[in-house]
Design a protein around this nucleic acid. Structure first.
Lengths: 249, 249
DNA sequence: AACAAAGATGCTGTTTTATGCAAGTTTATT
DNA sequence: AATAAACTTGCATAAAACAGCATCTTTGTT
């Protein structure tokens, strides 16, 4: 991650909560305390934040180039995607489910990544068409237009003889005792199957989805190996998941 | 590769990912770090990107001359699409093959068109997701990234029990005696099958493709029922086709 | 065609930047 | 006051940026 991006993220964090601990930042950004301190100093010099012992607090006005929703803006999803990148490596067979967070992940894929990817998401397939070294396969079937993924028997059939290294599953809701749930029965069915044929199951979720529940069960928590959120890995919200032996990034 | 092409590619990359590392670029473009740096400097001077240590990030607005892929013949394709619209009606089962002309066709589909559409083209599926009354199905299979369509056994399997009212076939070349031909064997195979399971076969082609030949045969002219070009229906170029009893719009 | 001028590209060596680490100092908290 | 966490300073290193130069293309002019 570029230093500029880091600065942007710090500003976002400060504007959202009016304050920030440097210890949290350095976990969230995967850099040393030193670097965070230097970043905060730089932002303080520019008058964007005010440095205090242990972190920084918001300063009245944010200059336009640092405001959220700027084009180059880095949201939570990008943080998640960057963390999740460490899970993929050359030569893997990867299944990628739909969802905007997963889309962000494939956008971060390095240009030369060599892998075989299966997906049922139209936008994700579209994005991956620009990666010359990726072997891409699409699960055919009926298109669920609202989320732009395919569902139905054909997908299940396609999956029957597949064995993937890792599956990035899209999760609308993640709960410490109920696992992953979603809003449509057919979707749940497909997702369950995706997880079933994969050696590792990773769920990329923004923290606002943690603790929520939807009507249809996708997979139990026991079947999920890795959870990636934008929070620092040690965050209290993720405690229950860590306790169950799930890797939390 | 021309310098301008390189600059365009860099801009594309930045607009897609919001950032780019110069190391990636020089690998991707096969030029030295120096050249990449000079390119980035140039783009930065024009205000198109913002240079940061190690690469560049997106800058709020991209001038129109650098926007993505301005595909050729856009005007002609629109004329073709409008004529071809008369071929579709509510309630039909329609197969739509890939290609930019066909994409233009679905863009012209009226909002409330009620139909069942099968396609193997990612952009077309994506476009049709916005049409609420269309039942959309996607042929799964291996993705041919350069044209964003699926190919392979799975597509053929998917097609086996289908019977469509009309098929809009994408044609790279159309010849009065050799029919439709294309550049890849797998593509030809799929297209032939698409035509086979359809009661009516329509080819939407710009006139510059008429009379050209590619290595692989898709279908004979006898199997094509309708040809749509941007030319007036009575144009001399289309005479040989009309003479064979093909409807020319 | 010949030739000059301008431009693009890559190479070499040097300078700057980003970042982490270590050792010592300051600050908060109990 | 004791102690742990947070800060400061200085240093080390690797990557990136820069400047100057040599080579090769392209372009325009006679």
């Amino acid at each position: 991650m570029f230093k500029e991006e880091r600065l942007q993220l710090i500003v976002d964090e400060v504007t959202r909560h009016n304050k920030v601990r440097s210890s949290e930042l350095c976990q969230m950004l995967n850099v040393s305390e030193d670097t965070v301190r230097r970043d905060l100093k730089e932002l303080a010099d520019k008058g964007i934040v005010r440095k205090v012992h242990g972190g920084a607090v918001a300063n009245s006005l944010i200059p336009p180039e640092y405001r959220e929703q700027n084009i180059g803006h880095i949201g939570q999803k990008r943080i998640i995607a960057e963390k999740a990148l460490s899970l993929v490596r050359d030569g893997q067979l990867i299944i990628i489910d739909g969802g905007t967070t997963n889309l962000e992940l494939v956008r971060q894929f390095p240009e030369g990544l060599k892998a075989t990817v299966f997906t049922n998401s139209i936008p994700i397939a579209n994005e991956l068409c620009t990666h010359s070294e990726i072997d891409l396969f699409f699960f055919g079937g009926k298109v669920l237009k609202s989320v732009r993924v395919t569902i139905g028997m054909d997908v299940l059939h396609f999956l029957s003889d597949l064995n993937a290294d890792i599956c990035f599953i899209g999760a609308r809701s993640l709960h410490a005792s109920l696992g992953i749930t979603t809003t449509r029965r057919e979707e749940a069915q497909i997702k369950r199957k995706l997880a079933e044929v994969s050696n590792q199951v990773a769920a990329l979720v923004t923290s606002d989805k943690v603790g929520t529940i939807q009507p249809f069960r996708v997979v139990e928590l026991e079947e999920v190996h890795t959870i990636v959120t934008e929070l620092p890995p040690g965050a209290a919200e993720m405690r229950p998941f860590r306790d169950k032996g799930i890797e939390v990034l």
